[in-house]
Computed example of a mutant assay.
Amino acid sequence: MTEIRTPRLLLRRWTDDDLVPMAEINADPQVMRWIGDGSVRDLEETAEDIERWEEEWDDEGFGLFAVELLASGELIGFTGLSVPEFLPEVLPDVEIGWRLGAPFWGQGYASEAAHAVLEFALQDRNLDRVVAINRLGNEESENVMRKLGMTYDHETKHPEFGFALHVHFIDLTEYAA
């Protein structure tokens, strides 16, 4: 089982116990406002998401990690790698992404977890480049991207919903973990 420990977090594969807390995160309109069309996701949709994320681990050798607080064991969201099939123009690049519950924002958890995932991408998966894609206006995510040392690449449109997206990248051959 793939696990990464940081000073405050455990990044790990998904378990059945993660379904309800992740569904609660996905049901929060504040969390979901920047994701897809902004719709919240229910328990069944979250179960489908987790199943898909686990399949990506099996198919690609990487995926989205469940992120829990070491101190309490509480699930706070996810951080990890995925194939951004919704935006074919950036393929074959791999995307880094994160989604944390609102009570965990502003405490450095997203940056801490994402730094660990970049190290995983470089050292364990031998990726040369990783992208991050965010909806225009999501300054919080852009701030995490800057902390990771990512560079703005270009603006494009979401192929399904039409809103502006920013694509950032980091060349992992130059990344200092």
Rank of each mutant, 00 (worst) to 15 (best):
L127D: 00
G137F: 01
V131C: 08
E85H: 12
E24H: 09
V67I: 05
L69D: 05
L81T: 06
D128F: 00
D37F: 09
G97D: 07
E45V: 02
D128T: 00
L91H: 00
E89D: 13
P29F: 09
T46Y: 03
F161G: 00
D93R: 00
Y175Q: 05
E160Q: 15
S111Q: 02
W105L: 10
A110I: 04
D128Y: 06
E44C: 02
E142S: 15
E139V: 12
L10A: 01
V90S: 03
L148S: 13
P7M: 05
E139G: 01
P103Q: 09
T79M: 08
S72Q: 10
L69H: 06
E3S: 14
F65L: 13
E44W: 06
E48T: 07
H166Q: 15
L70V: 11
E55P: 00
E24P: 03
A164W: 04
F65A: 09
V117N: 02
Q107V: 01
P29H: 08
E95A: 14
G149T: 14
E45I: 10
S72R: 09
L9V: 12
V67E: 01
D16P: 04
V94D: 01
R12M: 06
F169R: 04
V67R: 00
P92G: 09
T15Y: 11
I35K: 03
G101P: 07
R12Y: 10
G63P: 04
D153V: 15
P92Y: 00
R99E: 06
W98V: 10
E51K: 09
G101I: 12
G162S: 10
N134L: 10
P21L: 02
D59L: 12
G101N: 04
E24A: 13
D124A: 14
L172H: 05
P7A: 03
F104C: 08
D171E: 14
Y152A: 15
E74M: 06
I50Q: 02
I170S: 07
L148T: 12
S111P: 03
E74V: 13
L43H: 05
P7L: 02
I170L: 15
A66T: 13
A114E: 02
L148D: 10
L148H: 05
E142D: 15
R99M: 03
R12I: 10
F161L: 11
I133D: 01
A177V: 03
M22T: 06
E55K: 14
V94N: 01
E142H: 08
G162P: 11
L75P: 01
W57H: 01
E24K: 11
V90N: 05
